[in-house]
């Protein structure tokens, strides 16, 4: 019998929060009944959401205290507006006072809500600063990516500012989205309709192989929960040495792969015997492959 899976991809933000936290432990901040809605959308004749497309609050995972946020991807593509951003920033700032074992960000977003222009952009800067303030205080910030919108634009920058990223194969991570690249560089450079191309360029498996995502899990809320629980309270170093080491790693990566025309060439160079199969294998087999590759590294 196949064990029941509860898809993270298909779930709403609220269902994801309920599924990740211990039953009954969630306490929401600035909940929908407070009606903290966007001040900008009505001026544009657009409907608002009572929670501005994000759920924030506190709870426990396996009894350990966490702060948690979940973007609702079905509302305006999870895009970050002024109120949405303030809720996220406020949650991260709260961590300085309550010192949870981690702040967990369930990201599902195309980036800044362009309808809110400068307010959305400012919000993104504030979120990133708040992530760094939390990390500087020794509080772990974990990004989780597995929603339909992936993690793009400013939200992708926020994700990469976190201690670590956990994602499902369905997750995508990139600053510019496929349509943006196609519009700017032309369809010869990037065909946004080619989903295989999109996933092998921005998909979570590629990001795992190139060291931007830390762990791949199956599209299953319990799998995400276990992965988050396993790394709670283990913040990564956040100092000048860590930053310089990361810059050196990225410089080395550019030098090593700058001639590659396709992600499969990079995978082959990393030691993957059959790059064409990478897209097809399940999370378990993929993780065994990664373990072998990383074990082979000097």
């Amino acid at each position: 019998m196949i064990p029941a899976r509860h898809s993270f991809l298909e779930a709403t933000a609220r269902a994801r929060v309920r599924g990740l936290l211990d039953a009954g432990s969630f306490r929401e901040f600035c909940g929908p009944a407070q009606r903290r809605t966007s001040p900008h959308l009505p001026a544009l004749g657009m409907p608002v959401a009572f929670d501005d497309g994000i759920v924030v609050g506190e709870g426990t995972i396996e009894g350990r205290p966490v702060l948690i946020a979940a973007q609702e991807g079905a509302f305006m593509g999870g895009a970050v507006g002024e109120v949405h951003g303030a809720k996220l920033t406020g949650l991260l700032e709260r961590a300085l006072d309550t010192r949870p074992d981690a702040v967990v960000l369930l990201l599902d977003s195309g980036g800044v809500r362009l309808h809110e222009a400068n307010a959305g952009l400012i919000a993104m800067g504030e979120i990133q600063r708040a992530v760094f303030d939390a990390r500087a205080a020794g509080i772990e910030v974990i990004a989780v990516i597995g929603g339909r919108n992936g993690c793009y634009g400013g939200t992708s920058i926020v994700a990469r500012s976190c201690d670590r990223i956990i994602a499902s194969e369905e997750g995508r991570l990139s600053v510019s989205g496929p349509e943006v690249i196609e519009a700017v560089e032309g369809i010869e450079e990037f065909d946004a309709q080619d989903r295989a191309l999109v996933w092998r360029t921005m998909g979570a498996k590629h990001r795992r192989l190139t060291g931007e995502i830390d762990e791949i899990v199956a599209d299953d809320i319990d799998a995400f929960r276990s992965a988050v629980a396993a790394v709670l309270g283990a913040p990564r170093p956040f100092d000048l040495d860590a930053l310089e080491a990361e810059h050196a790693r990225l410089a080395g990566r550019v030098a090593r792969f700058k001639g590659a025309k396709d992600a499969r060439e990079i995978w082959a160079a990393l030691g993957v015997n059959d790059p064409d199969r990478v897209s097809d294998i399940e999370a378990d087999e993929f993780n065994r492959l990664v373990a072998v590759l990383e074990g082979d590294r000097p």
Partner: peptide, 11 residues
Amino acid sequence: EALVGVVGSGN
């Protein structure tokens, strides 16, 4: 109180 559904096209 309870909140259900998400604001989106046709929703």
